[in-house]
Write a protein that binds this DNA or RNA. Structure first.
Lengths: 236, 236
DNA sequence: AAATGTATACTTGTATAGTAGTATTTCAGA
DNA sequence: TCTGAAATACTACTATACAAGTATACATTT
């Protein structure tokens, strides 16, 4: 069975792979909606509300809520209600730091055991990134993630990459807040290119340093964003 | 929920731990059972079996299964069955590596901003570790984890520590396999002490190096263990 | 007027029943 | 004896109903 997403989500984003359970499908849908900010932080959602909206029973909704709770995207208060979690600046910065530690370590490994095929793949991704039309931030985001994932999997660090999935969720919530304004795509792409150059040269220290800078730049506007959208963040 | 009539009006007797749902309680129980090896890898478990065993309905069991599945401790095959995951040597080593990257980064931070209170706490933990009687590996394991957690929280890295919870689950499954044989407690304790010395000296590089060695030693017997318990591991 | 009890309308948590998919067994037919 | 399709016995998945906790509005009492 497949749940009716109605007009809340375009069918193009669905992968025709294996049939997921209703709960798993809803989890994906809600997760994306939270990250994209369609469900705003602090907003109350309920199992009944969602079950009606998608014409399913409460049980699958419940299971989706459990997963979202573990990802810290919502907060389930027993017998009281469920709310979209507000973004915590501290938590986002902490997550970003963990991602930095992970990816710097990965790029070091990659620099020490790279091959021509990898370099070619990475350069191809960078070329695609340059072709993204101005303003299509979502397309760029996908290519950006593929670039980083390629590095992680080449190093054989699937476990690490699975962890960064959760990290990226927190970070992307912030990035989507400024989705209207332009992402500095050319700059980020140049940084990618410089990382690849360092990898190709086999210079692990340089690659690590450039990756570190790259990841730090991603959220350097966080304080301003938090100030502009005070309702989206927890007071701390 | 019922009130405790025994210690009425004694505020100190209040447990800071809120009442967990049945599903959450079962999750804890099963998680511990899997890590301790009481539920052996490959073994089939079912919702009905557990609901009968604990005299509860199947719904809470289901929710516990979902959480265990996300932790990769069990594998839920839709319409087929649920099984205790076999241990993957690659995954354990990858997890250990991630833990190394995380904790080395943490100990660097701690070395650069330590204080006397922290050193005192750490030395106190080490003293307790020395007092653990030979063979009581579980007591040592708890003190070991508290040592590492203290470092993480002092660095203000709660997010990182949450991630290592999942990592430790995978590693501890291996450690519990050799629970009968003696853990080299004196050696591990000495390594802890040397890390603290480096922290107190403010030598971040040395502290990092010693932590790295310490964490690598934890699983150096993994290949032998995997060979001795082939049924517990996935063929790869 | 202020404090307190109570009904009500929410919420999430749990139990039970039935659905749908998979694997195994059974047994007719060669 | 072997083959293969249908019956059977599981499994996880979903739907519905009910239980229990919480917040709020409102009546009651002091």
């Amino acid at each position: 069975m497949e749940i009716d997403t109605g007009d809340t989500l375009n069918a193009a984003s669905f992968r025709p792979q294996e049939s997921l359970s209703i709960g798993a499908q809803l989890h994906r849908i809600l997760r994306a909606a939270i990250i994209r900010g369609e469900l705003v932080p602090g907003q109350a959602i309920s199992e009944i509300e969602m079950s009606k909206k998608f014409a399913i029973s409460r049980q699958p909704v419940r299971e989706a809520f459990i997963k979202l709770g573990e990802e810290r995207l919502i907060e389930v208060l027993p017998q009281r209600g469920t709310y979209i979690r507000k973004i915590s600046v501290k938590e986002v910065l902490d997550a970003r730091h963990l991602r930095e530690v992970i990816e710097v370590s990965i790029v070091r490994e990659v620099a020490e055991k790279h091959d021509d095929a990898l370099i070619k793949t990475l350069r191809s991704l960078i070329a695609e990134q340059r072709k993204v039309r101005h303003g299509d931030n979502q397309a760029f985001l996908l290519l950006d993630e593929e670039f980083h994932r390629t590095l992680a999997l080449h190093a054989g660090r699937e476990y690490m990459w699975r962890v960064t999935e959760g990290i990226k969720a927190q970070m992307n919530r912030v990035r989507f807040l400024t989705f209207d304004s332009a992402t500095p795509m050319p700059q980020l792409t140049d940084e990618h290119a410089q990382v690849v150059d360092a990898i190709e040269a086999g210079n692990a220290d340089l690659a690590a340093q450039r990756m570190e800078q790259h990841l730090r730049a991603l959220l350097n506007s966080l304080p301003l964003i938090a100030e502009r959208y005070p309702d989206h963040f927890v007071a701390e």
